[in-house]
Simulated assay, not measured.
Amino acid sequence: MFTSTKLEKKLIFCLLFFLLTTTAQATEYIVSPAPGDQAGASINGEKVVELEVTQIPYWQFLLWLAAMHILSIIDVILYFTKLIFVVLGFKIVDKKKYTRKS
């Protein structure tokens, strides 16, 4: 399935590395409501800073969405033959590697 054993070994190493390093141990914790009545108020004299809330304008979101749509259409047009093979379930292989030697 892979073109080389080195690539296969590297992919297996990366897969095992991410599987073994991203595991987390389950711990217990208790969720309780905030002790004060006011949200964001200082409880023990901490300095409370309100963060600035910024919103992206709706027209900017629509512009970004249109750009992604156009780029995906261009990608399908440029690589249309690959798309057909992927949809039909074929695999493109190197002909030189799989020719019979008599």
Rank of each mutant, 00 (worst) to 15 (best):
A39K: 10
E46V: 02
L63C: 08
I12M: 02
T3I: 05
I84W: 12
I56G: 00
P33N: 07
Q25D: 14
K6A: 15
I84E: 10
T54A: 11
I43F: 12
V86Y: 08
F2K: 07
G45H: 02
I77N: 03
A39Q: 14
L88G: 03
Y79H: 15
Y29R: 10
K82R: 15
L83D: 13
A24E: 11
V48F: 01
L20S: 02
V93K: 13
L20K: 01
A26F: 05
H69D: 05
I70S: 02
P35R: 15
L62F: 08
I30E: 12
I73K: 13
L16S: 10
L7N: 04
Q38M: 13
K10P: 00
K95Q: 12
T54C: 06
G89R: 05
L11I: 10
I56N: 03
S72F: 11
V76E: 07
R100G: 00
V53M: 11
F17R: 08
L65N: 11
M1Q: 03
Q25R: 10
E46D: 08
I77S: 03
H69S: 07
S102P: 12
T3P: 01
T23K: 00
Y98K: 02
E8Q: 09
V93Y: 05
F13Y: 14
M1E: 05
L88D: 06
I56Q: 10
L7E: 09
I92W: 04
F80C: 04
L11T: 03
W64I: 09
G45F: 02
L71W: 09
Q25E: 15
S32E: 15
V53W: 08
K97R: 14
K82P: 00
P33Q: 06
K97W: 01
K6T: 12
I77G: 03
A66E: 07
I92Q: 04
L19H: 08
K91N: 14
R100E: 02
D37E: 12
Q38F: 11
